[in-house]
C-alpha cells in the first residue's frame, strides 16, 4: 500500500502538467474566439479584403 505515497504525488504532478498546458493554450488565445476559426478556413486570403486589415 505504501506505493500510494509515490503514486498520488505523481498523479498530482501529471495533473499540474495538464493545467500548465491549459494555461498556455488560454494565453495563446485559443479560447478567445470559439467560433471564428471554424469560419476562417472558408475565407480566401488571396482576395484583397478591405475589412480586416490594420493592426
Amino acid at each position: 500500500m505504501s506505493v500510494i505515497y509515490g503514486l498520488i504525488p505523481g498523479m498530482i504532478l501529471l495533473g499540474l502538467v495538464s493545467v500548465l498546458i491549459f494555461f498556455w493554450a488560454v494565453r495563446a488565445g485559443q479560447y478567445d474566439d470559439l467560433e471564428g476559426p471554424a469560419h476562417r478556413i472558408l475565407n480566401d486570403d488571396d482576395i484583397d479584403d478591405h475589412g480586416s486589415d490594420e493592426p
Partner: peptide, 25 residues
C-alpha cells in the same frame, strides 16, 4: 474584456484540475 475572461478561465481551469483530482481522494 478578454483579459478578464482569461483570468476567469485560468481560475476555472485550475479549479477544474483540483476538482478532478480531489474526486479520486
Amino acid at each position: 474584456m478578454q483579459r478578464y475572461n482569461r483570468r476567469l478561465l485560468f481560475r476555472m481551469g485550475f479549479a477544474g484540475f483540483g476538482a478532478m483530482n480531489i474526486m479520486w481522494i
